[in-house]
Simulated scan of single mutants.
Amino acid sequence: MTTTKIAIVTGSSSGIGEATARALAAAGYTVYLGARRLDRLRAIAADIQGRALPLDVTDKASVEAFAAALPKHVHVLVNNAGGAIGLGPVAEFDEDQWLAMFQSNVLGLARMTRALHGRLQASGDGHVINIGSVAGFETYVGGAGYTAAKHAVRAISDTLRLEWLGQPMRVTEIDPGLVETDFSLVRFDGDAARAAKVYANTRPLSAGDVADAVVWAATRPAHVNIDQIVIRPTDQARADKVFRRTGV
């Protein structure tokens, strides 16, 4: 085993992934950052004395090349890469959008977990932390594709705990509610005005709030598994029930 704690964060070029990489580095981990926006990734890695590696979780070859560049022992894998695309109803769903969401949120998570399983196990204290969503156990109109993908993340997390029972492996799922990042900007294909309306007149979570939960779960004793953390702003009761202030 190794005394150096190694953490991997996917989708770490912005938002929750970036905040998580920074928070883990501050907690003493050596962080390997993976994402497609390599220039942005390198700048973050330089700030935290980490290492940036190109990664597209939707591409098997990219995942394998990323894994091959890692140390033999990895303590924490944060499966953060993913996101939502579109808000169309099921009767009019866009197959390309749904396929993209399942490729990143579900298959990408599975590819990374498969590729790093041996390294996580070899550390003697492997921990997979999956960034899910309240959409993993709630639904809302127009969100069927995304909620289906995040329900699948929850199913994978639950199944991994069964498959790894008795191994030195932990599995945590962190399910945020409304977080102000570029999530909505991506979902609405760069429409900044439409994305801004999602957070208007409310107090959403920050990426740092979610990163705090990741670090807390990761730093519990090795025999303690935090199965799930649901984290919402006080202005949100369900995925589609948000309090908005008037006159703000």
Rank of each mutant, 00 (worst) to 15 (best):
Q228A: 12
F93V: 08
G132S: 15
R232C: 03
R51F: 00
A211R: 03
G34L: 14
L70T: 03
I85G: 00
S184K: 07
I131D: 01
P221M: 08
G166L: 03
A26C: 09
R36S: 13
R244W: 04
D189A: 15
L53Y: 13
G88L: 07
A193G: 09
A193Y: 01
Q121R: 13
H75T: 04
G143P: 02
K5M: 03
V106M: 05
R119F: 00
G177Y: 06
K197C: 01
G124F: 04
H151C: 10
G124A: 03
V224P: 02
V210T: 04
W164A: 00
V230R: 10
K150S: 02
M169G: 01
R42C: 10
A25H: 08
V31Y: 07
V90P: 02
G83Q: 06
A84H: 03
S62L: 07
R37V: 13
M1N: 01
L109K: 00
R40Y: 09
Q121Y: 06
D47I: 10
D59K: 09
D209M: 08
A25G: 15
E95P: 11
V198T: 11
V171L: 12
A196N: 01
R194C: 02
N105P: 03
R119Q: 14
P233H: 10
A213I: 00
R51V: 08
G118L: 11
G208Y: 11
A69M: 08
I16N: 00
W216Y: 15
V141K: 12
P204L: 07
I16L: 10
N79M: 09
V198Q: 02
G132L: 02
A239Q: 05
A100E: 13
V9T: 07
F183K: 03
D59C: 13
V141G: 01
Y32M: 12
G108A: 08
A237E: 10
G83K: 05
W216V: 11
R36M: 14
I16Y: 05
T172E: 10
G208F: 08
L116C: 04
I131F: 00
F66I: 12
A81E: 02
D59G: 06
Q167H: 07
P89T: 12
A155Q: 14
P176A: 06
Y146Q: 05
G108L: 04
K241F: 05
L120Q: 06
L38M: 15
G208E: 10
S206Y: 07
Q49E: 15
I44F: 11
A200R: 12
L107C: 01
A239P: 01
D56G: 10
L116W: 04
G11D: 11
L41P: 07
G118F: 11
